Amino acid sequence: MNSTQSSAPTYTRLLMYLAATLFISISMGMNAIIFPVTMESFKFSEVTMGLVLASETSALLLICFSLQWIFKKIGLCLAVAIALLLRTGSLYFISSAEHEHQWLGFVFVHGIGAYLAVLLLQILITSMRFKKNTTIVNAMYGMMISLGYSIGPFLVGLSTSIPSDSILSKLSEIFVVQRLDVAFSVFFSIVSGFIMLAVGGKTPGQEDGKSRGLFNIIKDSPGVYCAIAYCGVVIFGITAFITIYGIRNHMEVYAASMLLVAFITGCIVLEPVYAWISAHFDLRHFLFTNIFVSLIFSAFLPLVIYDFYQSVVLLFLWGGANASCYSVAMSILLTRFEERDMVAANAAFSLMDSLGGTVGIILIGVAMSSLGSEGLAYIMMLASVLYFSYGLTRYKII
């Protein structure tokens, strides 16, 4: 792969990028169950689990500030290869880790490899300018992430029921890891990396002059980026803690993991619907309304958690509302920035997303430790109130 534009047709490259997004998201979706459930089995405290899981999202902060340097000094091909090596290598060590400091270090390294690949895919996809249906294309990218996170928990459950003499059970021997679920995660991560290396692509805007810095980009659209930070609190918080939240409220592990599946399935099914609806309204007001809907869902979560089916429905609807905020926000940004600023705009997007997610995960861990399991919902509601405190004090909310 080189930095020149691939000769493959645009839609073919788009489909391949989406496939790579799906496969790496399956791996990350499996890890969303493997990491917290394994730490729970080791009797790690909620605060410790929060710090470990936050270390993964905090890795994205490092990537965002380094992204322009990575493209300039390392290049796209080597960045993809390094990301693949970091996430597969860290999973190898995680499969046998038992101590808190080991988990903290290996999960952080995995976060660098995983989120670097996801951010590269996001930039490659959003830099493919289409004459129309931009919001739908962004929604397709979000759908692949959501679909991967939905498939992942099912594969974790499947890995526990595969007979030891099955061909699939040999994956753990092939990848030299102690656990079959981790071997599946490594496999999908490798497939994603190979697709990215095979398809190639062009780093957008590198020949069009110097782009602006991250903070200047954020300053130009503070309302959009604050909304992204709020969405980061929700998506990372739900991904990291909803399974533990269900277990704390007397659900079996499988039933609790289905709460995450319901949330992610809502992202898959409802995001394109919301994206289509948003095309008929002012995107700024649509974004603001969706966050208000998310506030309502977070307030009702403690009331319905005792009924599995009501919880599934609520999280399904909540997932769609939250996921659509991402595609709508990205569509707004694509209309505001030139191509030379797209790397910085995408980096700022992920920066605010990971900043919200990192702070949210830490606060949720502390809140669940000190206030009980309902600390999850309290932090979600607090994030909503903070966003509306910002938005409602300004006539122009975006």
Rank of each mutant, 00 (worst) to 15 (best):
F215A: 06
L61K: 02
N322C: 15
I174W: 09
V118F: 12
E271R: 14
G29W: 01
L355W: 09
L333K: 00
Y141C: 03
C77P: 01
V177L: 11
S7K: 11
M128N: 01
R248L: 15
E252Y: 15
I70D: 02
F106W: 14
N216P: 09
F23G: 06
A79G: 02
S211G: 09
V156L: 08
K72I: 15
S27R: 05
S350R: 06
I397E: 05
L18Y: 06
V366I: 15
Y326T: 10
E98R: 07
A139C: 04
L147E: 01
Y309W: 13
S211N: 05
S95C: 14
D181Y: 00
C77R: 13
M381C: 15
T88G: 05
S95R: 10
D208A: 05
I70R: 04
V177N: 02
V191Y: 02
Y395M: 14
H101R: 10
I235D: 03
R394W: 04
V343Q: 03
K202Q: 04
G266S: 09
I167E: 08
I397C: 11
T4N: 11
V109W: 02
Y92W: 12
F316H: 12
Y141A: 07
S6Q: 08
V253M: 15
S172N: 07
P36F: 05
K396M: 13
F154R: 02
T38R: 15
L53A: 14
H285S: 15
D165T: 13
I364H: 08
A59D: 05
G266M: 07
A347Q: 00
I112P: 01
V385C: 06
F175I: 07
S311W: 04
C325S: 03
L295K: 01
I291F: 12
L18A: 14
I242T: 04
I264M: 15
A345E: 00
Q178C: 09
T265I: 15
S185Q: 05
M28V: 10
T243K: 14
L283A: 06
S354Q: 10
Y11I: 11
G372Q: 11
S331W: 05
S384N: 07
T160N: 08
V313A: 15
G142C: 04
R87E: 13
F184P: 00
V293E: 04
Q5T: 10
P204H: 00
I190S: 11
I112D: 00
G237R: 01
K170E: 13
